[in-house]
Amino acid sequence: MPDDPAPAVTEIAEDIADLQAQVRALTARLDQLTRADDPDRTSAESPEEERGGAEGAEGDSGEPEWASPPFIFILDPPAYDDELCALAEWVEGVLVPGYLSEPSADARWCHLWTEHPVAVARLHALWLAWQELTDPASCGYTGPSTWHRDHYDPCMRELRLSGGPFNGCTKGEHSVMHRQPGLVPSAWKISTT
C-alpha cells in the first residue's frame, strides 16, 4: 500500500504559508524602500493600503522603522552603546544559558566577549537574524530552523573554534594579547550627509 499522502500535503501547505509570509515581508520591505527613495509618495499610496491593509503592519506597532538593519559597526556613540547593551542582554539572557555548553579547548567562549570586535560583529549579525527569523509573521514557522542551520551553527563554529577570536581565552581567563584594534575603520562608516 502506498504511503499516506496527507503528511506530504501538510508539509506543502506549511511551505506555502512560509513562502506567503516571506513574500509579505519582502513586499513590505520593498514598499518601505520605495517610500524612502520617493519623498513625494505618501504612506496612503502604499500597496498594502491599496489592497485593503496588511496584517501586522510594522507601522502600527509604534516602533521606528529602520531603512536597513542597524549593524553595530556603522553606529556611533551613543547609538553603538545602546545597541551593544541590547545585544549583551540577548547574549547573556538567551544565547549563553540556552545554547552554550561549558567552554573547552575545542569549544571556546570568553566571558568578556564584548572586548573581541570579531565576536561582537558575529553575535550582532546572529542577533539580527534571530529577531527576524523568530517572528512567524515575517518568516513563517520554519524561521527558527533556518536560524539554527544558516546562522547559529556557522557563527558558533567560527567563534568557538581553536583559531577563532577567543583563541587565547581559557575558562575564566581573558587574553588581551590577541585583541583586534577597538576602532572601526572609517571606510565602514556610512556618511549621514
Rank of each mutant, 00 (worst) to 15 (best):
P2E: 15
G163Q: 10
G93H: 03
D106T: 14
Q131V: 08
G52L: 08
C139D: 03
S101D: 12
T193N: 04
G53N: 08
D3M: 12
K171C: 07
H116P: 01
F166I: 05
E50M: 13
D38H: 13
R35Y: 09
H148S: 06
T42F: 11
E65F: 04
Q32S: 14
T34H: 11
Q131C: 15
T193R: 00
G98T: 07
W113N: 02
D38E: 15
L123W: 01
S162P: 01
D81E: 15
G164Q: 04
E11Q: 09
E11V: 08
G182N: 04
P64D: 09
T193F: 06
G172K: 03
H116Q: 09
Y141V: 13
K171F: 12
D3T: 11
A137R: 07
A129D: 11
E49N: 07
E14H: 09
L87H: 02
V184I: 15
S68V: 12
Y80W: 14
R108C: 09
T134C: 10
Q22Y: 03
Q131F: 06
S43Q: 08
G163E: 15
G93D: 05
L100G: 01
E65P: 01
S68R: 02
R179M: 13
E58M: 10
E115Q: 10
E115L: 14
D82S: 12
D135Y: 03
A121N: 06
V176N: 00
S175A: 14
R122K: 07
S145T: 07
A54T: 09
Q20I: 15
E45M: 13
D150L: 15
S138L: 13
L112A: 08
E92K: 00
T27A: 12
F166E: 00
F166A: 02
